[in-house]
Nucleic acid binder design. Structure first.
Length: 625
DNA sequence: TGGGGTCCT
DNA sequence: AGGACCC
């Protein structure tokens, strides 16, 4: 629609092979739905206009423009597919809060399950500010890129995503912590919980679980038997609206792939031709990215007699270094060399002396390495991390120019992710750390300043609740997320405003490629954008003993909650506090502060694992020390 | 029932 | 290498 505004008011469907992958709202009104076959769609809506969306190039480019724009406002952006982004706006919120009198606060947009006019922004200062940030981001995306979309503002990614769909076309909604339970119960089935896919839903169903509350109340012990501890706890927490995952800045892609599906392919001639075609486009994209792929993977799908769905098989191999150099440099004879490599892999997958029937071929570059900053110096053999990764989310502006010692960004102290540096943890730590000081001390407990936590915890529950509900207020570091999605609706045709500058670097994009869907479909969109913002108030309540329902059990129960903590209360806590508490509980024995990371370059490695919680002390507010 | 992606095992 | 998840 952006490319051709005249389609704006017509029912439009984006087609990939035989299905309508998405459509605009006009088409939806005629009954066209998301992954409907072309024939069904035409039946429901004979005037449906179809646009081929198999080449994702333009969608991918637009997608990164959105991500980059968001990053220019706030660096912590996590992509989810091509049309959704989570943005952790905690810091932005905190800084605005400092310079904003409470009396000047307001909410913009919808508030889930409440009248916006009936809610006092002073009671939820962070969420209120978050709602304004979301509105600003949506406006920026609209005015600079011509795209519209929804946003959800909540205390964690799960909630932000779920609430973003509350008001559909091009609106935003904020979730107040006390409405979390209602939101979760509003989901029609377990499949609606992001993170519960078809497989998990099926296994849950076999256990007799169908609704969100079924999962909330199911004994964790039994859940663990089916799924293992980690998965069990995670999905049960999700059902309760608890999501301790961080907004992980996405950075440049980890892999680039290109694929095509077809009814039938059964000769080597067709296969090598298709491989060549796919590779040509992939190499071009890879070249524009500028990084060097260290690994190549070939994937196929065979016509499956029974098990129709997803049987994909793959083989991968390292890419000879002379070839990966050439790819980055844009050498022209790379194609034939890579086709040779791919064909060899193909023979590992398919015995061509027998008949075969393929329905898909995929080629993929992964293990992408940024080119050494220090050119080929030996130094690069000593540093564990792939130098440089930098910048913008998108394609990492290729190296300034192929080959060339590129000088910029000499090792930035620690890149934000990309290949390997620490990210999650670091991020966590970082995000917390600054606030840490603020956090652990004063503001942290969500208690009024004049209340001694040690005294508070021994008060009767209803007194605690009362104190807290009056205090409503806030706390300090909370995560926030925002996602944005797009859709176009407005559309001017091509107004791509322009690259926007990101903190000092520029962004670029690639061009050709593959296929697509979503965005342009017209005005439609889906939902995207979620924003999660901080949260505010609400109370905590500690139960000593008695464990209410859930679960039981001892030490680890209800999804890992200590027996003295009510999951419902827990779910109302800000996400970062939830994270801290969980990680402390998990390490029961308190705080062996993990070796702590030297943080510097030395250890590098550690990409994203280990959730090492540090900072703690939260626990003391919950248990009798 | 696409053509992409991510992370975990 | 495959499996789960997301869009």
């Amino acid at each position: 629609m952006i490319r051709n505004p005249s389609l704006r008011d017509l029912p439009l469907g984006i087609q990939q092979k035989y299905i309508i992958v998405t459509s605009n709202y006009v088409a939806r009104q005629h009954g066209v739905t998301k992954l409907m076959s072309v024939s069904d769609a035409k039946e429901k809506c004979p005037q449906l206009v179809l646009v081929n969306g198999e080449d994702l190039t333009c969608y991918r480019e637009m997608s990164y423009k959105v991500t980059d724009l968001l990053m220019s406002h706030c660096p912590l952006v996590e992509r989810l597919g091509f049309d959704e982004n989570f943005v952790d706006v905690t810091e932005l919120v905190e800084s605005r809060l400092k310079e904003t009198p409470l009396s000047a606060l307001s909410f913009v947009g919808h508030i889930y399950n409440q009248e916006t006019s009936a809610v006092s922004a002073k009671d939820y200062p962070r969420l209120a500010i978050g709602s304004h940030i979301a509105a600003e981001l949506r406006d920026a995306v609209h005015t600079k890129l011509g795209l519209t979309g929804c946003a959800g503002i909540a205390s964690n990614k799960l909630l932000a995503k779920l609430v973003s769909g509350a008001f559909k076309p091009n609106q935003q909604t904020t979730l107040l912590p006390e409405c979390t339970v209602t939101l979760m119960h509003s989901l029609s089935g377990l499949r609606r919980v992001p993170g519960v896919g078809p497989r998990t839903a099926q296994r849950l169903q076999a256990l007799g679980l169908h609704s969100v509350s079924d999962l909330q109340l199911f004994p964790l012990v039994d859940l663990v038997k089916e799924f293992g501890e980690a998965h069990a706890k995670r999905i049960q927490n999700l059902a309760r609206g608890i999501d301790v995952s961080m907004v992980t800045p996405t950075g440049p892609p980890q892999s680039l792939s290109d694929e095509d599906s077809f009814k039938k392919m059964s000769t080597m001639a067709e296969v090598s031709q298709k491989i060549e075609e796919l590779l040509a486009s992939l190499i071009d994209r890879m070249h524009k990215d500028g990084r060097q792929p260290m690994t190549f993977r070939l994937t196929i799908r065979r016509l499956s007699t029974a098990n129709k769905w997803f049987n994909r098989e793959s083989r991968q191999c390292p890419i000879p270094s002379f070839l990966s150099q050439k790819i980055a440099l844009g050498s022209s004879d790379v194609l034939t060399h890579l086709v040779t490599v791919a064909v060899k892999l193909f023979h590992k997958l398919v015995d061509t002396s027998e008949a075969f029937h393929l329905t898909l071929i995929n080629v993929c570059f992964c293990n992408l390495q940024s080119r050494s900053v220090s050119r080929g110096s030996i130094a690069s053999f000593f540093s564990h991390k792939p130098p440089q990764k930098p910048q913008s989310s998108s394609r990492h502006t290729g190296p300034p120019s192929p080959r060339q010692p590129i000088s910029p960004t000499p090792t930035q102290s620690h890149g934000r992710r990309g290949g390997s540096d620490y990210s999650v943890e670091e991020r966590t730590g970082a995000s917390r750390s600054p606030k840490t000081s603020g956090l652990e001390e004063g503001a942290f407990p969500r208690l009024p300043p004049d209340v001694d936590p040690d005294v508070f915890k021994v008060l009767p529950q209803h007194i605690q609740e009362e104190l807290l509900s009056n205090f409503q207020t806030e706390r300090s570091g909370i995560p926030s997320v925002l996602t944005t999605d797009l859709e176009d609706q407005t559309g001017f045709s091509h107004i791509f405003p322009e690259p926007l500058k990101r903190a000092s670097q520029s962004v670029r994009s690639e061009e050709r490629g593959a296929v697509c869907r979503e965005y342009d479909a017209g005005s439609s969109r889906e939902d995207g954008n979620e924003f999660s913002v901080p949260q505010d108030p609400v109370g905590m309540r500690v139960e000593h003993d008695n464990s209410s329902k859930s679960v039981t059990s001892n030490s680890v129960s209800g999804a890992d909650f200590p027996h003295n903590v009510d999951p419902c209360v827990f779910s109302q806590l800000p996400a970062d506090m939830q994270r801290e508490l969980l990680s402390e509980w998990r390490q029961q024995k308190p705080i062996f502060k993990m070796p702590s990371r030297p943080s510097g370059t030395g250890g590098a490695s550690r990409d994203k694992k280990t959730k090492g919680p540090q900072t703690n002390n939260l626990l003391k507010y919950f248990k009798p020390s």
